[in-house]
């Protein structure tokens, strides 16, 4: 792996986004809009304080999943991946290039939503803004890594888009957003225990409730980071230099 190639790949992905104003606008604008909607749907400060941070963890996850799975599928079908595979680019260079580029986008995305939430929408946070940003960016990277992995199983962009409900919605249902995980049937809770999004949402709840960087939060952060690495390794295994 090479730092020059990783950074060049990051710059290339950011340049692609820069040319695509609409996607960039959607990436930044949609989560903010949803947050504003949510605030006025609840219209009770307590409920918004509880659900808001969880969604701050969910949005970057979902959006990065879609953007990355479609983006890498385009590299596969457009032949650019094959071209890169004939060049001295390591698989890790490509994956880390994606991770860095989308990590930066996630930072901007979370920054804007958070700024709007804390000022205009009056979100009340017990924990620090720093830990919230950390967890949100990690969630984004987790979504990105799973998206990279999922794209290996899609042949067309239609399929890739369908993976969003297939990979993400079950996790969203079971992660404790709709029903606290402790109140679910035992087998459902067991399933939710092995789904990474559960820990993403758990971490966000921790940040919104507890003022310090608690042990539970550290555990969640570790699990999210571990799942992200695992998905990246699995994603790397799906990138083949030689194909049929």
């Amino acid at each position: 792996m090479s730092l020059t190639i990783t950074l060049a790949t990051m710059r290339r992905i950011l340049a692609q986004l820069r040319h695509d104003h609409r996607t960039l606008g959607l990436l930044i604008g949609v989560p903010s809009l949803l947050m504003i909607l949510l605030r006025y749907v609840f219209d009770r400060p307590g409920a918004f304080d509880r659900v808001g941070p969880m969604l701050l963890g969910l949005f970057p996850f979902v959006i990065m999943f879609i953007v990355t799975s479609v983006g890498t599928l385009r590299e596969r079908t457009g032949g650019t991946l094959e071209r890169l595979m004939t060049m001295p680019l390591g698989k890790l260079d490509l994956l880390l290039g994606y991770a860095l580029a989308f990590g930066l986008v996630a930072l901007a995305q979370v920054g804007v939503v958070l700024a709007i939430s804390l000022t205009w929408l009056g979100l009340d946070l017990n924990g620090s803004v720093g830990s919230l940003v950390l967890v949100a960016v990690l969630d984004a990277l987790l979504g990105m890594a799973l998206g990279l992995f999922a794209s290996a199983f899609a042949r067309t962009e239609f399929q890739a888009v369908q993976f969003m409900p297939a990979f993400v919605l079950p996790q969203a249902l079971l992660c404790g957003l709709i029903m606290p995980r402790g109140q679910m049937a035992g087998w459902l809770e067991a399933v939710s225990d092995v789904l990474p999004l559960s820990y993403a949402v758990d971490a966000m709840q921790e940040v919104s409730r507890e003022p310090g960087f608690t042990g539970a939060l550290a555990r969640d952060v570790g699990i999210i980071a571990g799942c992200t690495l695992l998905a990246l390794v699995l994603g790397a295994a799906t990138l083949r230099r030689r194909t049929g």
């Binding site: 290339r12 340049a15 695509d20 457009g78 890169l84 001295p88 680019l89």
Partner: peptide
């Protein structure tokens, strides 16, 4: 290697494409 169906990033300029592949190489 130049592939039969063009394999460049459609959403980048010619120069951006070439500069990216040049730095990879």
């Amino acid at each position: 290697y130049s592939t039969q169906s063009p394999a460049v990033y459609a959403d980048l300029s010619v120069g951006e494409n070439l500069r990216y592949f040049a730095s990879v190489l």
